[in-house]
């Protein structure tokens, strides 16, 4: 299985993602944002970080970079595109995913582990995943998901809410929502579910020596679903 991680100036989770993808058997390539073409891939990842210094709005400048045209073509032809953290922000700025990531409700950069519940398994990302609630890492200042009432209805009706913040038992409540995100949303799909944007970083928790290794469930399952 071939994957490609796009590097923007200011990306800082690109190498973590490279390590994670390779650990589970992806043949990964790193692609510079100024390139025009992406080599044939099964999966494109927009990594976390602070692309273009978060100027204007998080992800807005990256959303207009040279490589994005190829990402759009790939995504619109059904290719799998995964955006983590800043990658999620870029996906909303390009219009591939609805809504926007606002500044956290309490104006703090949040860096900690959280639990998220998988809400939909009818997709290539979570089909057959062996754990329902994952302990993943978040590190963001703008993770407060927001969209219009109509968009939220459409997300719910089409089962596009991928993961939601919860406690270790999968219970959702305001107290487990770290950033004020609408309906505890931590990640969403597009309608066809080939595009996934999520604030938590599975690539940061793939080894027991780190604070959690639940990211293993995500990547192990992802490559299995390609076979």
């Amino acid at each position: 299985m071939k994957s490609a991680v796009i590097i923007f100036p200011g990306s800082n989770c690109d190498r973590d993602m490279d390590v994670a993808l390779k650990k589970f058997g992806f043949k990964n390539q790193m692609i510079w944002h100024n390139d025009m073409e992406i080599p044939k891939s099964d999966l494109i990842v927009l990594p976390g970080g602070f692309s273009y210094g978060d100027y204007l709005r998080c992800g807005s400048i990256a959303g207009k970079s040279k490589i994005i045209k190829s990402v759009l073509e790939f995504a619109n032809s059904g290719g799998l595109v995964l955006g983590i953290c800043n990658g999620f922000q870029i996906l909303t700025e390009t219009g591939l995913l609805p809504g926007v990531l606002l500044q956290n409700k309490y104006q703090k950069f949040i860096c900690k582990n959280v639990h998220v519940k998988i809400n939909d398994k009818e997709n290539k990302y979570f089909k057959n995943i062996k754990k329902e609630v994952l302990e993943l890492h978040i590190a963001h200042n703008e993770g407060n998901y927001f969209c219009s009432d109509d968009e939220l209805k459409s997300l719910i009706n089409n089962n596009q809410i991928a993961i939601t913040y919860c406690n270790e038992n999968g219970k959702e409540a305001d107290s487990y929502n770290p950033n004020g995100a609408l309906s505890n949303i931590a990640g969403i799909f597009n309608k066809n579910k080939n595009i996934l944007g999520m604030m938590p970083h599975p690539e940061r928790v793939i080894d027991k020596s780190l604070s959690s290794d639940d990211g293993n469930f995500f990547f192990e399952n992802l490559i299995e679903n390609f076979k």
């Binding site: 709005r57 807005s60 207009k64 909303t92 700025e93 609805p98 809504g99 606002l102 927001f146």
Partner: peptide
Amino acid sequence: KKLLANLVI
């Protein structure tokens, strides 16, 4: 419309 404002918000 294309860059300076995000019309969602």
